[in-house]
Structure formats: C-alpha cells, structure tokens
Nucleic acid binder design. Structure first.
Lengths: 141, 141
DNA sequence: CCGAATCCAATCGGATACTG
DNA sequence: CAGTATCCGATTGGATTCGG
C-alpha cells in the first residue's frame, strides 16, 4: 500500500515491484494502509457518515440526532456516537439536569472530515443513476 | 436526507423541519440517501477501494491484482471485482487462451471515483495519528 | 490461471425490554 | 431523556477444496 509513488503521483494501493526504494515505500505504506483501513471501517459503517453529516451545522442532543438520521435504532446511534467520540471526531457533553441533557458536537478534526465526505456524497448522487443502469444491464444479461 | 439545503449549503443528512419546501427536499433527498448508502456499501467494504486504487494506472490480470492488494483472498477478490463489474466501474475481459487470461480495467465512471477516494485516503493518512491518540486517551480514562 | 463451491467463525445490526 | 442489556437473524469474510 503506497500512497506517494516514485513519480510523485498519488496511489490508493501498492504497485510496488521489489526494488529497494519501493520496498521502503511499501513498508511505510503499510502504515498508510492501516490508516485508510481504519478510516474506512469507521465511515464505511452504516451510520457514522450520516451522524457526521447531521452534526455539521451545530450541536444536537441524542433524540434530535436520532430524528436527523432516519432509520437509526437507539442502540446503533449509541454505539456510533461512542465510536466517534472515542476517535476524537465528536464530543459528548452531559449536563447535570433532570431530565438529562446530552449534547453532541463535531470536534475540529471531525469537521475536517466533512469536506472529503461531501465530495464522496456528490459523486454518489451524480453517478448513482449510471450504477443503477449498469446493474440492470448486468443482471438482465 | 438533504444534500442541497434551502440556503444552498451542502449537507450530508437531513435537517429538514416540516415546511413544504423542506418536505419536497426531503422526498427528493431520500433518493440521495439511497445513492449515498449504495455507494458507501460498495466503497465501504473491505476491498473495493483498494482494488480501484490498484487499477488506477492501467490494466491488471487477476493474479496481478491479487498481488497489488495485499491480504485479499481469492474468494474476496473474485466477489469484489464482480460487484465492481456489475456496477459498471470495472470491465472484465476474458481472452480465449490457454492458460486463460482475464484483464481488469477501470471504466470511465470508475476512474472518476479515484479523485474523491484519494481525498478520503489523504484525510485518513493525515488524521490517523490524531485518531490513534484519541483512542488511547479514551481507552485509558 | 482463474475461478466456483462449500463450510464456518465472527461481526453487524435490528427488536425488545429495562433503568436512572 | 438517554441510555444499557439481551436475544437473535443476517451478513461478512477467511480457509479450503474442486474444476475448466
């Protein structure tokens, strides 16, 4: 897994043959692979990206968050925000009141994730029709 | 799930209160939600993005592809390229030879996925250390 | 060389019920 | 309100074996 190649181009996966330089790149790239894998495991799950998106305009409480992410169960929302909190992408603030009030908010790091996620979302919207057509053609033949 | 808001800003999830306009946006946005979900289900899996990355510089045969994506099993590589083929992101060309030769290549649509994926990969590499630190801090406390 | 088929463990995620 | 706990079906993905 190399991200910066010998020619300076960016790559997502490793092309490396077995030259010494490439091997160095490969070893360094293994770290990159873990980074990409880790991030993909987070944003690739069913709800994280939607939660990030729901929080992009400000603070939300648990129930509000649940309304903004249609279809998420209480359990999965809890697990998802815990993961995001653990990864330092979301802060969780508990106010000592009755009834309890818990507020979720993106951290600075969490906010930087919005831009690339949005790029992906735009790609999805733009190419979804083509994908649907491709599937029908593939399944039909 | 709204992507373009009333104020023109982009969003990943739906903020919509129940005005008529927002409801229209919401209904239209449900389509966007399916698009994003669909694409996330594809690139969010364990291997698709790595395969796309491996193919970004040209054509590869099955075994080459497997070498370029370290850790992938034969089974998963087969399933992954089939999905990508079905979605019209990759072409699969079988040459009638012995031994058989099968070549995989990105389609035009597949190539457009590289840019946003790379943006995400760069984010991953840049913020992975912060995520690791956040996790240690979270787990330690 | 390029797969398909089978088996199986682990994880994911929904439903439901209960709590401070 | 904001969770936690438990159960359970569905999905994921690795290992292995067989075939054209």
């Amino acid at each position: 897994m190399c991200v910066t190649n010998t020619d300076g181009r960016m790559t997502l996966a490793d092309d490396a043959p077995s030259t010494e330089y490439e091997d160095t790149c490969k070893r360094a790239g293994e770290e990159h692979g873990r980074a990409i894998r880790t991030v993909l495991d987070r944003i690739g799950d069913k709800w994280s990206l939607l939660v990030i998106g729901a929080l992009q305009h400000g603070t939300l409480r648990f129930t509000e968050l649940q309304r903004h992410v249609p279809g998420v169960s209480q359990r999965m929302l809890t697990l998802t925000v815990r993961q995001l909190e653990r990864d330092g992408l979301v802060t969780r603030t508990v106010h000592a009141e009755v009834p309890p009030r818990v507020e979720y908010r993106l951290t600075a790091v969490g906010e930087t994730l919005i831009e690339p996620s949005l790029a992906l979302a735009q790609w999805a919207i733009e190419h979804y029709p083509a994908i649907e057509r491709a599937r029908e053609a593939f399944d039909g033949s």
